[in-house]
Design a protein around this nucleic acid. Structure first.
Lengths: 139, 139
DNA sequence: TCCTTAGTTCAAAAGTTATTGAACAATTGG
DNA sequence: CCAATTGTTCAATAACTTTTGAACTAAGGA
């Protein structure tokens, strides 16, 4: 991945967050540029971000991305995105409702997310989330 | 690095370019977003790009970056940047004159380079060329 | 309660990337 | 020509990252 991304799936260096119910996220000022770039530099994760951007305002659960990989593999990639500060995951029952951290990213790295999303939209080589059965749950 | 970057230091999938005198570069339409992001997601390479941006218009040779790593290591990172299409390296004598491929990057990914450079400029954790990162030991 | 759905964790295997030093090649200045 | 300068290549190794399946937890519905 390049930039050292911390522990991934180990004891969080982030918020207090004990006794599970929320997942660890960096706060805005802890978001690192090289880590964000490295995390976005993976086609699966870039495809996740592109899809999230295309549904902005809607919180999606992990199963929405099953076209992009196995359940286990998505769990891994979604954790990377969350730990890098690119996405936020809110626990709702057995679901993780996932959103882009647009405001935080725009504040830290103005223009970056927009240019990445626009360019990703043009990228024919990226894997895509197929337009089949979509169960969107409103925020 | 994430995105599959091709062979690196092997037979070029790019231009004809036989019998060394020019180095292999992708042309603009071959530049891939995930590969560029993955390549920029390394602190050393991001520092190289930041420094190139700070000297835009000037072609720098590899030795300029020696603060960021060993000669061999820089050769490796500069090859990655070149192969991803982020930089151009022109052979001039024993030197490789290195420039940012700003026009090509702006054409392919509008706004991306500017936002990365601006954000990298704010990043206190990145290694620096001008000695800002150096620990000076007194005699 | 039992079953299903949603997602995580673990450990192993595979694959990639980064770093190193020694050896090399090409150019240029003395 | 010789030596210095510039940078590449090679092979080894270290250090990650990604992918996988099996086992697991937690919540919610029948």
């Amino acid at each position: 991945m390049g930039a050292e991304g911390g522990d991934t799936l180990k004891s969080p260096p982030f918020a207090p967050n004990s006794r599970a119910m929320t997942l660890p996220h960096p706060n805005a000022d802890q978001i690192s540029l090289p880590i964000v770039l490295a995390v976005l530099g993976d086609p699966t994760r870039l495809a996740i971000v592109r899809y999230l951007a295309s549904k902005e305002g809607v919180a999606l659960n992990c199963s929405q991305f099953l076209d992009l990989g196995s359940k286990t593999n998505l769990s891994y990639h979604l954790a990377k995105l969350r730990e890098a500060g690119v996405t936020r995951a809110e626990v709702v029952g057995t679901n993780r409702m996932i959103t882009l951290r647009r405001a935080d990213l725009d504040a830290r790295f103005p223009g970056l997310l927009d240019s990445v999303i626009a360019a990703a939209g043009e990228d024919k080589a990226l894997p895509a989330v197929g337009g089949a059965d979509e169960i969107e749950i409103q925020a």
